[in-house]
């Protein structure tokens, strides 16, 4: 707590004196509940708010940039953006381009289908049906793995996750595979859709930086997450974003962001969680 207070104080000092380091945070902001843009263009979501809280605790500033998913690892890898915060699963392949923080979230894959399709998670993935996924995601990788094993399934890839969902609603494809929270968010929003089932993949999400971490950011990020957990703010952010209604979270976020501007990480997370769950 002392450390946090000190950090807040330091942040304040730095902000006033204009010395605070600013880092560009790249995020594919089309992926609720982890990151998206509300109706006024404010960027919010679990990843982004964790990042904002870490920034407050560690005394730097962040500038969030909306990125396309298919170039995000390349661009962070070569240093065009400083930090990637985009619900990214830690994989060996991605480790070749970027360095990941310690895992901050564990996710599974969920299969989304039309409620009236009569499919289940087994038939959807092995009955010769077309399954949509965002390009270069672990979901797409999972279906590719099935294909490689000779399973009867067709993979259709999309640059944006919502475009896959749109095609599912329109009947162009039969299922969409995606991380569980995103699939749940879609099922919550669209009455026609339902989650057919969850595949326990136990994937770890990590923030990522350029290979070799030239700016020395990973220790700050890891320490930041630890602090948030110790403060209880982390759990509140989970409570605020996971399984809640999108517009409700947006309203709660607008009502709470003032806390963060004051440097009150704990108050922000608590207020956000409370309002989002009312």
């Amino acid at each position: 707590m002392k450390k946090a207070l000190l950090a807040v104080l330091l942040t304040g000092l730095f902000a006033v004196s204009g010395l605070a380091q600013v880092y560009d945070v790249a995020s594919d902001t089309t992926w609720p509940p982890f990151e998206w843009a509300d109706a006024e263009g404010n960027l919010l979501g679990f990843d982004l708010d964790v990042m904002r809280c870490i920034a407050v605790l560690q005394g730097f500033e962040i500038n969030i940039i909306s990125y396309d998913w298919d170039i995000i690892f390349d661009d962070v890898g070569i240093g065009r953006a400083d930090i990637g915060a985009s619900g990214a699963t830690i994989t060996d392949e991605r480790e070749l381009k970027v360095d990941f923080s310690a895992p901050y979230w564990t996710s599974d894959q969920a299969v989304l289908i039309r409620a009236d399709s009569g499919l289940n998670i087994v038939t959807a993935l092995s009955g010769g049906y077309t399954v949509g996924a965002q390009i270069e995601t672990t979901g797409a990788g999972f279906v590719q793995g099935l294909l490689d094993d000779g399973v009867d399934v067709i993979l259709q890839e999309y640059t944006l996750y919502p475009l896959a969902v749109l095609d599912l609603i329109n009947g162009n494809i039969d299922a969409v595979i995606q991380d569980e929270p995103a699939s749940q968010a879609s099922a919550t929003a669209e009455a026609d859709l339902t989650v057919a089932g969850v595949i326990k993949t136990n994937e770890n999400f990590g923030f990522f930086v350029a290979e070799g971490d030239p700016e020395g950011l990973l220790p700050l990020l890891n320490d930041g997450v630890d602090q948030l957990k110790a403060l209880g703010a982390y759990d509140n952010l989970v409570r605020a974003y996971m399984g809640t209604d999108l517009t409700k979270v947006e309203a709660a976020w607008k009502a709470s962001i003032g806390f963060l501007e004051e440097g009150d990480v704990v108050g922000f997370a608590l207020n956000l969680a409370t309002l989002a769950n009312q």
Binding site: T29, G41, T188, A189, L246, T247
Partner: peptide, 14 residues
């Protein structure tokens, strides 16, 4: 891109 951000969001709005 701004248009994309808007219409991807509304897919998640009930």
């Amino acid at each position: 891109k701004q248009g994309t951000l808007i219409f991807t969001r509304i897919q998640f709005v009930k």
